[in-house]
Design a binder for these strands. Structure first.
Lengths: 224, 224
DNA sequence: CGACTTTTAGAACCTGGTACTAACCGCTAG
DNA sequence: CTAGCGGTTAGTACCAGGTTCTAAAAGTCG
């Protein structure tokens, strides 16, 4: 029972027990999703039927299906890029009062050298939330004041909490404070001034002097 | 000769002349890249051979090849998403002095309702440039002060100009001012404080108190 | 009419599989 | 010893969605 494993061990990369082989299979496939069963037989030194049985058991679709899924995913990603209205998942929202969003730092958000999140992603989460929390037709960031308290690393979950500081529905501007945490630790702080439409026109937005506003309005016309 | 076109016209969507059919084919395929030849025969009312000859002539690969290409594209997009080190195209860069980048506002950058660019994209361009202009191993945004002077609209080209304000290579922090323009008009202004590695350690970064730093350092260890 | 382009048809073949049947190997329990 | 079982392998039929090639029919023009 003990002592002797199965098969010979000396030759090194010989056939693995089922469990390990299947794990290796998963690794190989998501390392290179474009691998065919035939190639896998060479890698794992088992028959093509075994490969296929393994895929069945593991619920891994065939190559073509995998490619189709990837293609579809990337296709409606492009289609719905505009649908990504918000960076981070908003998990709580009390309009004109407060909001919470959660954002996981993934590969694409970090500097590859240091694995530290780029500032603009952290800002994007906070900014999205600050805009979302404002209960208005149009809400635009007018200005902001940011402190990146400590670097945020790959894999960390960043939880942003926004609080509307100014009396709601009043002026054309709202103050929103956003604090972002990883666990207990505050990692980012931002004070936003958000322009809100209210009843006023968007032309009231911004800090530009009057003649600029007209220019802007003109440009808007020529562009639409 | 004249008057009579080819075939009967009365029935409406009848077979088109070759040229137009091929154009329609292109439209149909890039409207829905997942369409099979068989489906196309139904759409265009020609035989499957004609469809295939058309694809040949137009250099359009078969369905499976199309899906594969899409999958591959999306795959190495994911792989090289880290390569998108910078938002906007940097067209001029004098390290530790100044830099210019250009960024065109596209569909995916605007609020669909208003066609106005989301603040964080404008920030991302400025932030990327501010970081890029710093001639250091590691450069991280420590804090920033932003003014969104006027809304930026779909299709506008935003040109960001960064100027390093602090004496270069000196302290652990650099001041960078970024001004963004559409044409002559200033649309955004940001003052960044960028943490730079210099000879110091990244642990020196941030405004967190000492015990926080250890925590951060620990986390870094557990994560690598 | 004959020459030419365009369209259609059909058969053979390809890849990368699925689905199913059958056999074999090594081990163990009765 | 033998039957049973998990795991593996082999082989065949079949499929989608094509390619490649040959050949013929249909429409077009001078």
């Amino acid at each position: 029972m003990f002592g002797e494993h199965r098969h010979k061990e000396e030759t090194g990369i010989e056939r693995l027990p089922k469990r390990q082989r299947q794990q290796r299979l998963v690794e190989l496939i998501d390392e290179n999703p474009f691998v065919t069963d035939r190639e896998l037989t060479r890698r794992l030194k088992v028959s093509i039927q075994t490969i296929r049985l393994d895929r069945m058991e593991l619920g891994i679709p065939e190559l073509r299906e995998r490619m189709k899924l990837m293609a579809e995913r990337s296709y409606d990603q492009v289609r719905s890029l505009a649908a990504e209205e918000v960076i981070g998942d908003i998990i709580d929202l009390q309009l004109d009062r407060s909001g919470i969003s959660i954002f996981e730092i993934r590969e694409e958000h970090v500097f590859s050298r240091t694995q530290i999140a780029r500032g603009h992603h952290i800002f994007a989460q906070a900014n999205s939330l600050a805009v979302a929390v404002i209960n208005d037709e149009i809400a635009l960031t007018a200005s902001a004041d940011l402190r990146f308290v400590r670097p945020i690393h790959l894999g960390e979950k960043c939880i942003a909490k926004a609080y509307v500081r100014s009396s709601p529905g009043k002026a054309g501007r709202a103050k929103v404070e956003v604090l972002s945490y990883v666990g207990e630790e505050m990692v980012f702080q931002g004070n936003f001034i958000i322009y809100r439409s209210d009843d006023k026109k968007p032309a009231d937005y911004g800090l530009a002097p009057p003649e600029r506003q007209e220019q802007a309005a003109n440009e808007e016309d020529t562009r639409t």
